[in-house]
Simulated assay, not measured.
Amino acid sequence: MIDATEQINAVRRQLGRRVLEAGEARVMTISQTYDAPLEDVWDACTNAERIPRWFLPVSGDLRLHGRYQLEGNAGGTVERCDPPKSFAATWEFGGEVSWIEVRLTPVESGRTRFELEHVAHVDQERWDQFGPGALGVGWDLGLLGLASHLAADGSGVTPQESEAWMVSEQGRQFVTASSERWGEASVADGTDAGQARAAMERTTAFYTGAPTT
C-alpha cells in the first residue's frame, strides 16, 4: 500500500460554490498528479475492466448518454465525454442527484494531472453536521486506490485488500488525516474554525467508529 502520509500530501482539496437552476450548490474539487501517461489514466478511469481494480465494480453502458451503476454506491448518466481529456456524469445516490466531472491534463515528464469536481446541493443542516469530509474522505480513498493501481512498481492492491487496510491502524490514520484536511479546506472557504472542527470530528467518527469529543 502507498505511504498514507505521502498520499495525503499529494492531493489538493478545494471548496467553492456555483449557482444552478435549482439554486446554489457546493463545489468540491480534488486533484492529484500521477506518474502515468494521459492515455493510461484515462483508460483506468473509463475501462469497465479496470475500474473495479481500484474503485468499485461497475455495470452499464460507459458511453455518452449511457447509464452506469457502481456496486453498492451511486449510478447515473454519462452527460459529456471528450476522450482522453474529460467526462461528466450525474451522480445519483439515496434519491439525490449531484454531478461529477473528471478532467485529465498532461504535465511534464509524461505525468498526468487528475482533477475531479463534485457539484451537489447540500442542505445547511447536513453541511453543519459533517462538512465536506462526508464526501471528501470517500474521494480521497478513491484517489488512493487510483494511485496504487497506477504505481509503476506494481504495488497496486485490490478493493478487497483496501477494505482490510481501512480497518488497520494505518487506514484509520489515513481517514483521520483526510477528514482533517477537508476541515481545513472548509475553514479556508469561510466556515468558523470551531464549527469546522466539530464537523470534522463527526465525519472521522463516522468512517472510523472513533468516539467524538
Rank of each mutant, 00 (worst) to 15 (best):
Q129K: 03
A151G: 05
E117D: 03
M1G: 10
A74M: 06
P37W: 08
D40H: 15
R50A: 05
N47R: 06
A188C: 11
F87R: 04
P211C: 00
E125Y: 05
L20A: 04
C45A: 14
R53L: 01
Q160D: 12
G60C: 11
R53C: 00
A74S: 09
D40T: 15
T90K: 06
W99A: 08
G16T: 00
A198V: 12
G23S: 03
G76C: 08
D189T: 15
Y207M: 07
T112V: 12
T213Y: 14
R53Q: 08
F206E: 10
E79S: 04
V41E: 11
V27C: 01
A36R: 02
Q7A: 15
G145S: 08
T176I: 14
F130Y: 13
T191A: 15
V119G: 01
Q170D: 13
G194R: 04
I30N: 01
L15H: 10
G142R: 07
S162I: 03
T204K: 10
T46E: 12
I51Y: 04
F93V: 06
S86F: 02
H118W: 02
A210S: 14
A4W: 11
E92F: 07
G171M: 04
S186F: 15
G95A: 04
T191R: 15
D35G: 13
R18V: 11
G209E: 03
Q14K: 14
R80D: 02
G131Q: 01
E201K: 13
A88Y: 02
Q160P: 05
L146V: 04
G156N: 08
P106Y: 07
A88K: 05
H121P: 01
D192Y: 08
P37V: 07
L38F: 13
A151F: 13
W91K: 09
R63V: 15
G190Q: 03
W99K: 05
E169N: 03
R12G: 11
T158I: 02
Q129Y: 02
T29L: 05
